[in-house]
Design a protein around this nucleic acid. Structure first.
Lengths: 191, 191
DNA sequence: ATGATTTCTTGACGATTGTCAACGATATTT
DNA sequence: AAATATCGTTGACAATCGTCAAGAAATCAT
């Protein structure tokens, strides 16, 4: 199961057999039920996660309404950046939308890995870089695209999300109400 | 002048006197006129920039209209993440909105620095981490706030921008037309 | 200083959106 | 299989927004 993480890391940086064993030995794996909260705002994040299977929703609680900011699926790192970096209480929540399996890379695990090999420096870097690229792409889509175009863009890039995620979550991610998303779909179907 | 970069880095990671000298010796400084383009879409980015003085606007060209995604001012790193990481042509543009002074950290400069001290690993990491935090905050503001709330939020966080940047740039950054920003201001003034 | 740009504001109008509410469809649970 | 909860669509209406256009204000260049 953890092989998926190893494969992923090796897309970016090669690992020696020993390093692979270090990962197999030290990295924890945890299961989350559907709708369970992985991480709640107010807590201080000390872990980086990696999605082995399932789907994680990042959301903010605003005036008792929750707003989805992102979906993480297989092969993506999840990290509450600001909380993790500065040991501050997080402002965001993470929830499993499906039965989900995550690798847990705690700070202590990462330290242990680092004692064994400097290569593991790269893991945190890769996680952060990948999140940055994703984040920049999302901002670009907010700034440059209409809600309708963001919809078609998401459909092209990550169409599989529509098959596994309730659409009212996708709606808030696109920055529109569920009703509007419904109408956008209807509008596009007519073309 | 470059001392500003050194001070900034030392907020995050201490430097030895030798390392400080390495930076003074190797890091280039470049001036940009107001309205000059620092980096144009289609080019492949090989540099990380650090703003010593002035203001840089990140914008996308969409249907011949340009849309502002961000403003970088003194003490911020600028990096076309995707282009820099994967040597792909960039999709974004960077423009100096004022006479601007930047540190240029080219890949070759960074390599040279790395040969002298592993501490410099941290620079790229800090730059990326900081950009990620900023990016995540922007996404949160798009997802959780109305245009009006994003305006007041920006005013609180980076009010100085309103004194130095034409407001139609700020408008597209907030995701609204210049006319709407004008009306938002008027609406708030009445309260 | 003067003229020329650029920037900001305001009005009008049509299009789009959010909200509230109702209804049907789909999943989930027992 | 029936009951319950969740989810998606549709309608109506008020609020907001983008666009176009015109004019005022500020800035820049000569």
């Amino acid at each position: 199961m953890i092989e998926k993480l190893i494969d992923y890391i090796e897309l970016y940086t090669p690992l020696s057999p020993t390093e692979r064993d270090d990962l197999r030995e030290l990295v924890e794996i945890q299961q989350f039920d559907k709708h369970s909260i992985i991480f709640r705002e107010g807590e201080i994040s000390t872990d980086i996660y990696f999605v082995l299977e399932g789907c994680v929703r990042l959301f903010y609680n605003v005036d008792a309404v929750d707003k989805t900011a992102f979906f993480y699926t297989e092969g993506q790192f999840v990290c509450a950046g600001e909380s993790y970096t500065f040991n501050k209480p997080a402002v965001e929540n993470y929830e499993a939308l499906e039965p989900t399996t995550l690798c847990i890379l705690s700070k202590t695990t990462i330290e242990k890995l680092l004692q064994r090999s400097a290569t593991f420096e790269n893991i945190a870097r890769i996680a952060v870089e990948n999140e940055l690229l994703t984040a920049q792409r999302i901002i670009a889509s907010f700034v440059t695209l209409s809600a309708e175009d963001r919809y078609t863009d998401l459909l092209e890039r990550r169409g599989e999300l529509f098959l596994r995620i309730p659409q009212h979550y996708i709606a808030t991610f696109l920055g529109v109400s569920p009703e509007t998303l419904s109408r956008i779909k209807q509008r596009i179907a007519k073309k």
